[in-house]
């Protein structure tokens, strides 16, 4: 099982961002890193000039590096950002099909978890176009994961292993709305919540979390207890989604789990203090709903 570190979903302070990738470059347990802006094009200018150095550090640390597309491309500058991705000379992780439209014919690319790969026909179409790696949508049940991994043949297939789940993307910015600001005058208020802002029900049930235009799960996905099954289904890697604190402890625990030094029970006990939102879910893989943890819906 390889570990891929997904793009940072939140808006992080630039110094924190740089320190994170410098440390990630030195982290032996990580094989692959997807870097770049996934959620909001307005955030990119705050760290864009630091990207080359971070990429260089990661490559020097022996990591495979891919650069993500935006999750939703609408504006002119977003289309240009997306069109420019292949020119970086790195593997492009397509998270909006707009990026596919801009890849030169025959170029290899990766398919991220925000692309709707629900069936073999879609997977085969993308493979014919040059897809060389898939991270499947988190929503998929085990039966679909198994069939897709089989259809992928030698192409590696990853699933979401850790972190708040990317459940929805919108044209509307919920952080700006919450702070009574128009989206165009958001003053980058999402930076106050680098791992998302909790949304609870009127009865204080942990429900969701907002991250600008993105909606995340309140619970932190943790596939530790499904690891052996995922291996058996043909999954070749786990994607861990970065968080602003405790992330390197989580990486270490995953390495211990994968290498058999600890079991899933011990993993979850030791990882829980680091889980954004303070609770786990793993229900998409075998139900009854995504929020379920080990088949139980939280009370």
């Amino acid at each position: 099982m390889d570990l891929t570190i997904g793009p940072i979903q939140g808006f992080w302070d630039a110094d924190l961002w740089s320190a994170f990738y410098a440390r990630l470059a030195e982290e032996p347990a990580v094989k692959r890193v997807v870097i770049g802006e996934l959620v909001c094009s307005k955030r990119l200018p705050f760290y864009q000039d630091r990207l080359p150095e971070a990429i260089e550090q990661l490559l020097a640390g022996g990591k495979e590096v891919a650069v993500t597309s935006l999750a939703l491309v609408t504006l002119k500058r977003e289309r240009k950002m997306t069109a420019d991705l292949p020119g970086l000379g790195l593997d492009v992780e397509v998270n909006d099909l707009t990026a596919l439209a801009h890849l030169p014919d025959g170029a290899q690319f990766s398919v991220g978890p925000l692309i709707n790969v629900y069936n073999e026909g879609t997977l085969r179409f993308l493979a014919r176009r040059g897809a060389a790696r898939f991270c499947l949508p988190p929503e998929l049940p085990a039966a679909s994961v198994e069939r897709l991994a089989k259809a992928a043949g030698t192409i590696p297939v990853d699933v979401w292993g850790w972190g708040r789940l990317p459940l929805a993307i919108s044209g509307r910015c919920y952080h700006a709305r919450y702070h009574d600001r128009p989206k165009d005058q958001c003053q980058f208020v999402c930076a106050e919540d680098p791992d998302g802002l909790a949304v609870d029900t009127l009865e204080d049930q942990k429900f969701l979390a907002i991250n600008g235009v993105q909606t995340l799960s309140a619970q932190c996905a943790n596939m530790a207890h499904a690891l052996d099954r995922l291996r058996h289904l043909g999954v070749s890697g786990l994607r861990l989604s970065p968080q602003s604190t405790g992330f390197f402890e989580v990486i270490g625990l995953f390495r211990d789990l994968i290498d058999g030094r600890i079991d899933a029970e011990a993993f979850s006990e030791q990882a829980l203090p680091h889980a954004p939102g303070g609770s786990f879910c793993d229900g998409f893989i075998d139900g009854p709903s995504g929020v379920a943890w080990r088949n139980q819906i939280p009370a």
């Binding site: 709707n116 629900y118 929503e139």
Partner: peptide, 21 residues
């Protein structure tokens, strides 16, 4: 729909059943 349609799994997160699937 408030979310981008076809890109939303809120319903299956809470109920196990979604627009996409």
């Amino acid at each position: 729909c408030v979310m981008t349609e076809g890109r939303c799994s809120l319903s299956s997160y809470i109920t196990g059943r979604s627009p996409n699937m």
